[in-house]
Design a protein around this nucleic acid. Structure first.
Lengths: 198, 198
DNA sequence: TGGTTAAACGGACAATTGTCCGTTTAGTGT
DNA sequence: ACACTAAACGGACAATTGTCCGTTTAACCA
């Protein structure tokens, strides 16, 4: 007896759900669209939707996966082409990509973060492959520098702190309050890194 | 005709709500307690509760206010008594107080942050007096140092980034993943600051 | 003290989220 | 081909969140 693979109808439903959700989100924004509405529009039962996605945040996360793949690929390329540049430039390159991403996918990211039940230990951003990817890449850059230092913070800790400081809500808050353009905020983060690495 | 002040019964209800919520939260934790349950237990209508607090996050925030006042007072004292110490020690002192606070009030803070509807521009942590207090104090310490530097990041930006990096969920994630004790994580943050200030 | 009025009240009513359970169906082995 | 079974299905149900609106009441002023 072999392992049952995912049923054909299940695969189709998965695609149908993502496609329907995408259309509704594009039309009305993320927050106003309810799970009931998504199920109704897709013509499936609500339980079918919930069986696949525990909540809207979970659905958003899946929608972001595809984008995340594209993003990490771009960063991989960038890191190859800039491998001979100083650490600061490489770090700043990664962060700029991240900033572009939150500018583009703000609604999805915020919905994901806010709906992810925080009691459920495995359900937040810090357990996504994307977080891990970013942290690893940034930590390895920090490690190059920190190795030469006494009393330096753990590279993963430094990377973690930097990632946290670029979470969407805080990012937009600062941008609005100080009236920074996207380019100005990128420059600010670059300077922060510069101080970190100095 | 003078300005109507808050009605006597309204003041009593406010106190009753906070007291009831505190008891229920102590007994069952923050998340499992519903707004309906709070209203029922307090013996008031649900609308009365919602008129005062838009959602559970709002209620948590009010419950944190008192604690926040105490916290900022402690920090003010600390800053006076340590005013002749180096910037690093003062900064680190503030952060340690903050870390103690999130260790103690984790449930309330997370409930507040996650329930604060992110669409509502004025409803997140970054609009609280506490955030502003922390950012101002830390920024003024950064300003002492940054003044002597070329190309330094905006002090408020640096303070903001540091505050973000100490948000409760990220804090506990890192603590658990790396298996740090509270003291070890404080030391890590101290080293991060050291690099910032160096 | 008594009338006026704005504010507070709370039960009942939506809307949304999340779950149960009896039914259907696609895959597997004979 | 056919029966069997595990998985998927979805409507109906429960719980929670959030709102409406007619009623009550405390503060103000004459």
């Amino acid at each position: 007896m072999s392992i049952r693979r995912e049923r054909k109808d299940a695969i189709e439903h998965r695609k149908l759900i993502l496609q329907t959700a995408l259309q509704l989100f594009d039309k009305h924004g993320v927050q106003p669209v309810s799970m009931h509405q998504i199920a109704k529009t897709a013509g499936i039962g609500q339980a079918t939707l919930y069986r696949r996605y525990a909540h809207k945040g979970d659905l958003c996360m899946d929608m972001l996966q595809e984008y995340a793949k594209q993003l990490t690929d771009e960063i991989d390329e960038l890191l190859v082409s800039s491998q001979s540049l100083p650490a600061l430039d490489r770090l700043s390159g990664i962060m700029n990509k991240w900033i572009d991403a939150i500018e583009e996918k703000f609604g999805l990211i915020v919905a994901m973060e806010s709906k992810m039940s925080c009691e459920d230990e495995r359900g937040n951003f810090f357990h996504t492959p994307m977080y891990r990817y970013f942290r690893d890449k940034m930590a390895s850059i920090f490690a190059e520098i920190h190795a030469t230092k006494e009393h330096a913070a753990d590279p993963e800790m430094a990377a973690h702190a930097l990632i946290c400081s670029m979470s969407p809500i805080g990012y937009f808050h600062m941008k609005q309050e100080k009236g920074y353009s996207t380019e100005q905020i990128k420059e600010q983060f670059r300077r922060l890194c510069e101080q970190y690495l100095a």
